[in-house]
Amino acid sequence: MTTRYDEPHRLARTFNEVFRWLAEAGISIAGTHALRVRGRTTGTLRTVVVNLMTVDGRRYVVSPRGNTQWARNTRAAGRVELGPRWRRHEVRAVEVADDDKPALLRRYLDRWYWEVKGHVAGLTPTSTDDEVRAAAASIPVFELV
C-alpha cells in the first residue's frame, strides 16, 4: 500500500460535509452512505460519506483520495458502522488485496468517475489495464462483510 493522499480543498470539504449530513439523515445522493469508524488514537466515532458499491451481492467502499484518515482508521479497527443515524449497523471491513482491486476499480470508475475525477490516482474509465493495476496499490478498497 502506498501512502498517496489527495487532500480535499475547502470547497470539497464543504460539499462533503453537506453530503455527509444528508447521508446521516438517510438521503442518498448517487449511492452515498454514511460510514462511521473509530479513530485510531481517540476512539471517537468519525463519520464520512462514501459511495457503497455492490458487486455480485458483495458490498465495497473505495477511498479514491488514497490513504485517507477514514481508510487508516478502518484498516486499524476492522469494523465500521454504516447507514443513517437511526438505522446504523456494524459490519466487518476487510481490505481487498491489490491483485483483486482492478476489476472493482473499473466498476467504481464506471459508476462514479463524474464525482471523483481528478482524485483517483489519475485514472479514468478509459485507463488501460496496466494503469489500473499500477494505481491499485494507492487506492484502498474494503469489502463490508
Rank of each mutant, 00 (worst) to 15 (best):
K117G: 03
T47K: 01
L45I: 00
T68S: 15
H9P: 00
E131D: 14
N73V: 02
R87W: 11
L144I: 01
T44R: 15
R79G: 02
A25I: 03
V55N: 10
G39A: 04
D99C: 09
A134W: 05
V145I: 09
T128E: 05
H33K: 15
A135T: 11
R46C: 08
L105N: 11
A71I: 08
G122T: 08
L11T: 04
N16Y: 02
I27V: 15
E95S: 13
E7I: 02
G31F: 04
T41A: 14
L104T: 04
A136C: 08
R92C: 07
N67H: 12
R107D: 12
I139Q: 00
T124C: 06
S28Q: 10
P125H: 09
V132A: 04
Y60I: 06
N73C: 05
A25G: 10
V48T: 15
P64Y: 10
G83L: 00
R107P: 00
W112R: 03
T54D: 03
H9W: 10
V62F: 09
R111S: 11
P64V: 11
D129S: 13
W112M: 02
E90D: 09
Y60E: 04
W21N: 07
S28N: 05
A23D: 07
V145L: 14
G57A: 06
E131A: 14
L104E: 05
R13T: 05
V141D: 03
G66C: 05
T68G: 08
R40C: 06
P140V: 10
A34F: 00
R36A: 14
G57M: 05
R20Y: 01
G39K: 00
I29V: 15
S127H: 08
A103T: 10
V37E: 01
L104F: 03
T126Q: 15
D6T: 12
M53K: 01
A34V: 05
N67C: 10
A76C: 07
W112D: 08
R87E: 14
W112G: 02
R79C: 08
G57S: 03
